[in-house]
Nucleic acid binder design. Structure first.
Length: 403
DNA sequence: TCTGGGGTCCTAGGACCC
DNA sequence: TCTGGGGTCCTAGGACCC
């Protein structure tokens, strides 16, 4: 160590690795079912549904299919593809195994989503012979043990690492040394920057900013006037400045809201159909609250109308709740009180927010007495027990059976 | 082609309190 | 007569990410 040849280009910087699984859901399906290998696989539901593509295999991408594309359009482009529903359990199982692989290389692993994670390898890369050797070893482990490929980016902070991994999918490995961050960023279009979506991209183009390099040169004052607090942050990112702190997966992540939503196969304002779904969604939300030991105080009803316009109405209660009855009652009040049934509805959603951890005590109450301090009754407890022992769909409210 | 479902964060206005 | 300034809570909408 110490010779000029070995001088550490990372000295004084963190070394952050971003791992992104290639076409994750589709790749898992192809791994489980060898008959799907080499074929276009589209995960996201039946081809005639109103959904969008969640993930598709690279074979499907050759037909122009990509994620977030409406299912019906994917079908038009690639009618011979295999269409699959997403099935959470399988993917979570593989995801946990991949996180365990990553933990061999550093304890500082931050899962971003089911198929992505950041790893702070500042303190461990030397042990593996440098960042590149470490990354190659990670990819080999994932390939050998899970039969899947990943793309990896390494840089001095999280968002540059993420952009590095995105820049060479699939099976990529891109390392951006601290000295080369600006060259890497500035030639790219501005919408490649994390946090710049379609709206911001248009606003930036309107003032002549097309590349990240353009953004880096724009005056901070102008950006602040246009984008508020985000303005200067964006300029900083264009110059490679960003958060390099990795949040450990051992740190408890407290959810801020929990919700479920569903799009009807056809728009409807049939009261039975709408309230039936509302009951189902309320049930799902209350169940999630209880499983995670949370209570909420605010119920939000979300309605997407036939014209695709989104409306939300919220109600904050005086008491915390985690029972289906309380959520449903509030959601129904919001539905009827705002006359949402006067016009056809495309989607409804129910969510709970203003969350806190429940107090542990469960008061002694009668079977049909559901009006306890937090709204949890014996019936809910019975349902929880049934589902814990026999599965999530072992019991449903009668009115939810149609779904 | 007609646009999912799970979230987070930010903004802005109004009610209300001191 | 007119009418402050700060703070919190709540609601609604919107941008963005995976």
């Amino acid at each position: 160590m110490g010779g000029i040849m070995n001088e550490d280009i990372w000295h004084g910087h963190k070394v952050i690795m971003h791992i992104d699984m290639d076409a994750f859901f589709a790749a898992v399906e192809q791994k489980i079912n060898p008959g799907l290998r080499g074929r276009p696989v589209i995960v996201g539901g039946p081809p005639d549904s109103r959904g969008v593509v969640s993930t598709c295999s690279y074979e499907a991408r050759n037909y122009g299919v990509h994620s977030a594309m409406p299912m019906k359009e994917a079908y038009r482009l690639c009618p011979d593809a295999v269409y699959l529903d997403t099935s959470g359990g399988k993917y979570t199982y593989v995801s946990v195994r991949i996180l365990n692989i990553l933990k061999r290389y550093s304890p500082n692993v931050e899962p971003v989503s089911i198929d992505e994670a950041f790893v702070d390898i500042t303190g461990s890369y030397e042990r593996f012979g440098g960042p590149e050797k470490l990354a190659r070893s990670v990819k080999e482990d994932i390939k050998r043990e899970q039969g899947l490929t990943a793309s990896i980016g390494i840089a001095l902070n999280r968002f540059v690492a993420k952009m590095a991994s995105s820049s060479s999918k699939p099976e990529g490995l891109v390392i951006i040394p601290p000295q080369e961050v600006k060259q890497f960023l500035w030639v790219q279009p501005v919408n490649h920057l994390w946090g710049i979506g379609p709206k911001t991209e248009i606003a930036l183009k309107n003032i002549g900013i097309y590349s990240i390099g353009d953004l880096a040169e724009e005056s901070e004052g102008r950006l602040k006037r246009m984008f508020g607090v985000m303005g200067p942050v964006l300029k900083g990112m264009a110059n490679g400045e960003g958060d390099d702190g990795v949040r450990l997966c051992t740190e408890e992540h407290e959810a801020k809201s929990m919700g479920h939503e569903h799009t009807f196969h056809r728009d409807t304002n049939d009261p039975d159909e709408v309230t039936g779904l509302l009951m189902y969604l309320s049930d799902r939300v209350s169940r999630r609250l209880r499983i995670s030991g949370c209570e909420g105080r605010t119920v939000t009803l979300k309605i997407r109308k036939s014209d695709f316009k989104l409306v939300t109405r919220a109600m904050t209660l005086n008491v915390y709740f985690n029972s289906e009855k309380v959520i449903y009652k509030a959601a129904k009040k919001l539905l009827l009180g705002n006359k949402f049934l006067d016009h056809p509805i495309r989607l409804i959603g129910v969510s709970a927010s203003n969350l806190r951890k429940s107090e542990g005590m469960i008061p002694e109450i009668g079977l049909f007495d559901n009006d306890t301090h937090n709204g949890t009754g014996k019936i809910d407890q019975l349902l929880d027990n049934l589902r814990d022992n026999h599965g999530e769909d072992s019991i449903l409210y009668a009115s939810t059976l149609r779904f």
